[in-house]
Design a protein around this nucleic acid. Structure first.
Lengths: 342, 342
DNA sequence: TTGTAAGCGTTATCAG
DNA sequence: CTGATAACGCTTACAA
């Protein structure tokens, strides 16, 4: 690597000292305007780029924030990232993004990497495997501000930002009830995971209010993928009576079910209604348009970043750890609207 | 921030010097096994985390790669990122991701940030606005290895990885011709941008081979969005004769057109066929399933990362800058298949 | 308003 | 096989 110009070089060229240059570049109030201008011009002339590594070392902390995300190429998470960047970049921070790929081992490695890089803070969404939290406490003990988002735990004393899955699910189920549907069926990811426990809780609650026991109606848990739901549904249709509506806790699973249903020439919503969750881009594009729940993922990113910045600023000072809940919004589309004139 | 343990602390605790500790931690061959073990144990006991900032400063370079992406929450780009990480992480590099948001100003700022962070290399996809390249040469002059991907230019002497858009488009048009379609129509993004110039070139070429002039058939250029295409198509249908097929250089625009067509009760592909480009997740989910072109975005990320690592290793040594082309694959689905038995 | 000098935690080099 | 020392580029008390 060719030698880069440093503040020393600028200082030499102007016959002043490095400290003056440093101060001038940071617009220190006690430096003469004329000096600042000289320094600035020379910096420009010598093509100076500050070395933030040196600066970080000196300050014991980098202008960098670490973010752990289960998978970056999921629509939901990449939108969270967009939200995070929209807050962090203007505040002068860079993002190092790490993927846990749903593995707790990778998550631990990610945290170590971020600690080694002396990030100013961490934004973490837990992997599905994560049930112990030593590695996260590890970071907290080092006084690194941590904000958990989306996949959170309440067992740690951290800030957190989560979706109100129970509420979204509750409201969506209420909508289905209002449409007159009673015989329902649940499909979703494993209820080992908070997300699906919560979504199921909302579903159950809304049904309980009208005296229906969700657990006495069909329930399918599996991988959150189109294929899993398709395979299950194809089989289900062969030997089980059709419910009036399928409540899917995932848009992809809803899609899998829809394909299986359409292959059997069942009309949606006339023969059977289907709802999804998380409002994937395709939800409004397929036919029929899929009723779903919008999660405001970008907003989740922004709120998380905001909380993190607050903590970074109030460094050291003990403060209560805020918990933010993002309100979901149900998006009613064709797939669950009962044709009234029938 | 609480004081973190350093190699000095380990050294003191063991009555040896920091350099020995450093060497032991890096498994230097000339350090006694017993010493290594002592050091390793003590590091563990004191909860040591290497300070990569200090290491980077000393080495003049960070174990970090910078990546500039127009927008992170696009399916295509988030898949490229996944590919990049899959190569870079195992090689011990972290990714700093910056978004240009299609603005050359932001792109310049991004490059400066990355230079300041002394990244070992950069992966860059140009913003749509970018037509001058001083800022990129700026990085190259500093001997920072650069790989351009997807949105590239040949005006710079860099490695690059691009899609063979012309070929994808050519093959898709050939397929349309084979299906018997002749009256075509082009919709796509502005041909100011390479991507669309190339896709148009393939379309034009295939048609020229059978004596048809693409420029004498309807052409629409606009924002690459569902809405733009929808609005255009709705209007178009009011006063222009229907072509046999719409060649859309974007899946989203194809989708917009499809919605407008379906609102007029036109059957696809019976009344009019439609093809898209880039095989978005929804392409196989909508009805009819959309013919499109798969671009292997993850592979593009992997190839880019591979090229970058090579350059980082051969640092300094002049070597020819490799240009890689990723072959696309046309995915024929319902939306362009002419029912033979008619 | 500017200069002096020390130090952030590592690692490369030289010496033993 | 290990130690001593300097240096990476910047910031910040403290001094002037």
């Amino acid at each position: 690597m060719k030698k880069q110009t440093t503040i020393q070089d600028i200082a030499q060229a102007l016959n002043i000292t490095a400290s003056t240059v440093s101060r001038a570049l940071h617009d220190h109030p006690k430096i003469k305007k004329s000096t600042k201008k000289k320094v600035w011009d020379m910096a420009h002339k010598l093509n100076y780029q500050p070395n933030s590594i040196a600066s970080s070392l000196r300050k014991g902390k980098a202008n960098t924030v670490g973010m752990i995300v289960p998978r970056i190429n999921r629509h939901f998470f990449s939108n969270v990232i967009t939200g995070v960047e929209s807050i962090l970049n203007p505040a002068g921070y860079n993002l190092i993004i790490c993927q846990s790929e749903e593995s707790i081992e990778k998550e631990k490695m990610n945290i170590n990497t971020l600690i080694s890089n002396r990030v100013s803070g961490m934004l973490i969404s837990l992997s599905l495997e994560t049930t112990t939290y030593d590695h996260i406490e590890h970071a907290i003990k080092r006084n690194i501000p941590v904000v958990l988002y989306d996949r959170i735990t309440h067992k740690l004393n951290t800030c957190s930002v989560e979706n109100d899955d129970e509420k979204g699910s509750y409201q969506l189920t209420k909508h289905l009830i209002e449409q007159g549907y009673r015989k329902m069926m649940w499909i979703g990811g494993s209820r080992k995971f908070n997300t699906y426990t919560n979504r199921f809780a909302g579903y159950e609650k809304a049904l309980r209010e009208i005296g229906i026991n969700a657990n006495k109606m069909p329930i399918f848990e599996g991988n959150i993928s189109l294929e899993t739901a398709y395979d299950f549904m194809k089989d289900f249709l062969n030997h089980e009576p059709l419910p009036e509506v399928i409540f899917s806790a995932s848009d992809f699973m809803a899609m899998g079910a829809i394909i299986a249903l359409q292959e059997k020439n069942l009309k949606i919503p006339d023969d059977i209604a289907v709802s999804g969750y998380s409002n994937e881009p395709f939800a409004s594009l397929i036919s029929p348009k899929l009723t779903s729940v919008e999660q405001f993922s970008k907003k989740m990113g922004q709120e998380s970043a905001r909380l993190l910045l607050e903590q970074i600023k109030n460094e050291g000072q003990k403060q209560s750890k805020q918990k933010i809940t993002i309100e979901p919004q149900i998006i009613i589309r064709e797939s669950t609207i009962k044709i009234k004139s029938e």
